[in-house]
Design a protein around this nucleic acid. Structure first.
Length: 885
DNA sequence: AAATTCGCGTCAGATT
DNA sequence: AATCTGACGCGAA
């Protein structure tokens, strides 16, 4: 199939250059000031602004974000319409930035503000808010100002004079969302104001939701009702394009500085979620055209002018409400922006907005997937820790199972067709990261937007604490509660001592496991223990150590007092999210009577909830979190310890033999069913917690080390925890052999079978020995892969091996930064390490690898009560080692 | 801008 | 030269 190749010269291109058209319109107005007028706005909208909804028009669609527009000095809602276009609805309610203060209007008068500062104040109102800690209504002055920056200025003036202020550090566009109780990701009709549309719910479903709130407060059931809508409304399918930019570089491995944008952009690929893949490429005389272009690439345009190419890209992007990149904040977008500036394109005509920590488009939203996939809570709870390195090809390989197109030469010298193929592939992969498994990632983002009340651009750029903060702030506003200031939250000294130095408070208990093989082991755990504790013990910043409490009870071990007369807000929020997940959506995700598509959505709902729930304890122990409360965090772990200890006590009274336990789990050796049932009932009655049977192991191997065991389930499935043989940094050949040996463990049936299994293991290990000795493994298999947690030059105290290797790479001119995984091998020279890419097999220090093998397998052999030498045979070991010493 | 603590193995570098 | 301690990375929960 021959590809239609559209080669266009600059002259031809300029005939429909929208930029020129826009320019002429702008020039017809007398002064720059007039640019703010509606007429010019309208004229510019298709190019520099995107579509703006007229004052008398209504727009309906999904709210994806809210932004403060500095030129309009108003909040702007980004609403994606049915036809797939992004509409920008400018606030018509005259909402303005503000903050709250203890200073009265008279106080302000007396202060004698400068005329400039006075002008910044539009209005002062006396407002009444509920103070959650003081448990009473308070009257405060609401200072309404003309500009978000004025909040910062006035707050510092008032602060200097000793007045208190609240809610002054909430970003304006967030205030807009919270005050209007908007839910990003949901459907709205925007006319005079934003109205909810299509928030429908099945009445029988709603009543089943309400049943989980039985016996709870009014606030609790109100929240439940609100949330149910968010989980039930199907996610919008939004048109989006991924782009990827290729830049000429004179040297391989050197990424040009986007702030300077010194070299030409040679190719840009765009891949949308409707199958369109377009590449815009620059014609260069010295570059071969090359051969065929893959079928997936639907359009190619070759330009002889870089400027025209970039402008055409901007025009193309205007059709998309959402643009995806991988690393666009740090590279692609600033490069495009600065490159266009240096090519003489005026700022006004570049529809890119540069912000402090992000960069986006004037008329559409930008999702930088590099930022999104670096959200740690997602890595762990949504993607199971599957990818380690935050590079496009690493993430894509794990999640999509595809690799990059291999280039034999650097981008600058490869043939044009090859460059197009390579470029297109990256854009497609970027797009696919949001579309795979039926839009899994996109739907997850939408769900998190709805729970957190943050827009698309915030949700995809901030860690889980920002998500939880958003939800907390929104709920405070909904209730008419004052958002407390940091000083009002009780911090104080920790009352428990951590086990590890440099930690602030004590965490969980880990029992010391025995050594040996244990047949028939039941593993029980408390269903989401920490969130349940937060709920059952009414833990919240305003219910702990609050002198205004009516009734109270003491928290064990740490002795904090918690209110029992009024429900705490965090306790209610965390409790509710947990109930939704456990009682409704986990079940519905597996309900085979529901259509497939619906089940998948419910699975996304429950996994979004999971991320929230699992992070909801940790954030309270994080000082940067606005609702940071050491007593809350400390109480959670203290209660956890007490519950576990007490469960152990009751278990031993029933003659249950507990061999191990960690935080929220207990391993019971050969239990009687009725004893387990007793224990479960005890925990439910005593603490209101659900102790559940998590797994049944045919056999568990313990080597006497905490967080370290191998379990074989009844199906012969092997569960490995903490062992060196499983760690990502362990050389591949050891991991592979370890996997094989562990498979043999699956054959363990009873104590007698252990001998047969051991014999097999011994054979495997000996074989492996010989192979290492003969250098039978490749360099890649021998590589130790460790991540640089900081830039190489930032290691001051010691120089770990992977840093040594990293510096050797730097010396070769290879760019190495924080987050890179360094592959190195151990060598016989005085340094002892070398990056894989620079090493030869003959340089490898075999004895070091033998040691590595020894520790790996000793962790396992320990449980058999055996030493390494015993299983491998002392004599043969000596022979093998001897030949290398 | 950032969820927490507990625990293991490896190595660097200092101390004896 | 042997031993101890802390930094570091990775994992469990």
């Amino acid at each position: 199939m021959s590809k239609e190749r559209n080669v266009r010269t600059l002259d031809e291109y300029m005939r429909y250059d929208v930029r020129e058209k826009v320019k002429s319109i702008v020039e017809s107005f007398p002064s720059e000031d007039r640019l703010r007028s509606t007429k010019v706005e309208k004229a510019l909208r298709s190019w520099t602004m995107g579509e703006v909804v007229n004052n008398n028009e209504e727009v309906e669609g999904y709210l994806l974000d809210v932004r403060y527009d500095g030129r309009l000095n108003r909040a702007v809602a980004f609403i994606v319409r049915e036809d797939g276009r992004m509409a920008r609805w400018i606030d018509r309610t005259d909402h303005r930035p503000y903050f709250l203060t203890s200073a009265t209007p008279e106080d302000l008068q007396r202060l004698g503000l400068s005329s400039e500062d006075s002008e910044r104040i539009l209005q002062m109102d006396i407002v009444s808010k509920f103070h959650s800690i003081r448990r009473e209504k308070v009257r405060l002055t609401k200072i309404i100002v003309n500009d978000p920056l004025a909040v910062r200025r006035l707050r510092s003036i008032l602060g200097d004079k000793g007045f208190k202020f609240w809610e002054a550090d909430i970003r304006y566009h967030h205030n807009y969302i919270f005050d209007n109780l908007l839910v990003p990701g949901m459907r709205y009709r925007a006319g005079k104001r934003m109205e909810r549309v299509g928030w429908d719910i099945d009445p029988t479903f709603l009543s089943s939701v309400m049943s989980i709130t039985a016996g709870e407060s009014k606030e609790y059931s109100d929240m439940a009702k609100e949330l149910a809508f968010l989980f039930e409304q199907r996610p919008p399918r939004v048109k989006r394009a991924a782009i990827d930019v290729e830049v000429y570089t004179p040297e391989a491995g050197k990424v040009p500085d986007p702030a300077k944008a010194p070299y030409p952009v040679v190719s840009i690929a765009l891949a949308d979620n409707e199958g369109r893949v377009k590449v815009l490429a620059l014609y260069r005389e010295k570059v071969k055209l090359g051969g065929e272009i893959p079928k997936e690439v639907t359009e190619v345009e070759i330009f002889d002018s870089e400027r025209a190419m970039l402008l055409e890209l901007m025009r193309e992007l205007e059709r998309y409400p959402v643009v995806l990149t991988f690393n666009g904040d740090a590279f692609d977008l600033p490069y495009l922006y600065n490159r266009m500036l240096s090519l003489g394109i005026e700022d006004l005509y570049i529809p890119i907005e540069v912000h402090e920590d992000m960069i986006t488009f004037r008329h559409s939203l930008h999702v930088d997937l590099h930022k999104f996939f670096s959200i740690k809570a997602l890595q762990v709870y949504a993607f199971g820790g599957s990818y380690r390195e935050l590079r496009l090809d690493s993430v894509a390989e794990v999640l999509l199972g595809v690799g990059k197109v291999k280039l034999d030469e650097i981008v600058s010298r490869v043939s044009l067709s090859k460059l197009i193929e390579y470029n297109a592939r990256d854009a497609m992969i970027t797009r696919d990261l949001t579309t795979f498994s039926n839009d899994l990632v996109w739907n997850l983002i939408i769900m998190v937007m709805r729970i957190s009340k943050l827009g698309l651009e915030d949700v995809t750029r901030h860690q889980v604490s920002a998500w939880i903060r958003g939800l907390m702030n929104w709920e405070h506003r909904r209730r008419g509660w004052l958002i407390p200031s940091r000083e009002e939250l009780s911090a104080g000294e920790a009352r428990s001592r951590a086990m590890i130095k440099d930690k602030r408070y004590r965490g969980a208990i880990v029992l010391n496991p025995p050594t040996g093989l244990f047949f028939n082991v039941a593993v029980l755990d408390y269903a989401s223990l920490y969130p349940s504790i937060v709920k059952n013990w009414n833990l919240s910043y305003e219910t702990i150590e609050n002198p205004r409490c009516g009734e109270r009870k003491k928290i064990p071990e740490v002795g904090y007092e918690v209110c029992t007369d009024i429900r705490g807000i965090t306790s209610e929020i965390v409790g509710l999210l947990r109930e939704f997940r456990v009682k409704i959506y986990k079940k519905r995700a597996k309900d085979s009577s529901l259509p497939e598509e619906q089940r998948r959505w419910y699975d996304t709902v429950q996994s979004a909830l999971k991320v929230y729930i699992n992070a909801s304890y940790g954030v309270f122990g994080n000082e940067a979190f606005p609702f940071y409360s050491l007593p809350v965090a400390e109480s959670v772990t203290a209660i956890g310890r007490t519950v576990l200890t007490d469960t152990l006590r009751v278990a031993s009274e029933r003659s249950l033999y507990i061999i191990y336990g960690d935080t929220d789990s207990i391993f019971v050796w050969d239990p009687k069913k009725e004893d387990l049932e007793f224990l479960v009932k005890y925990v439910a009655d005593m603490y209101g917690l659900e102790l559940e049977l998590d797994k049944k192991f045919k056999v568990v191997l313990f080597g006497g080390l905490k967080k370290n065991y191998i379990g074989v389930t009844e199906k012969g499935e092997v569960v490995i925890k903490g062992m060196v043989g499983k760690k990502s940094s362990t050389p591949e050949f050891i991991k592979n052999e370890f996997k094989k040996v562990v498979q043999v463990l699956g054959e363990l049936e009873d104590p007698e079978s252990a001998y047969r299994v051991l014999e097999k293991i011994r054979e495997r290990l000996l074989e492996m020995y010989k192979k290492v000795k003969n250098r039978g493994y490749t360099l890649d298999e021998l590589a130790i892969r460790v991540m640089l947690s900081k830039d190489p030059e930032k290691y001051k105290k010691t120089t770990p091996q992977h840093v040594k290797a990293a510096r050797m790479l730097q010396a070769e001119g290879i760019n190495v930064t924080r987050g890179n995984i360094i592959s190195y091998v151990k060598t016989k020279d005085s340094v002892g390490v070398k990056p894989v890419s620079l090493a030869k097999l003959s340089e490898v220090d075999v004895s070091k690898y033998v040691e590595h093998m020894r520790t790996t397998f000793e962790q396992m052999l320990e449980s058999f009560g055996l030493e390494w030498e015993e299983i491998t045979g002392q004599r043969s070991l000596d022979k093998i080692l001897g030949s290398h010493e």
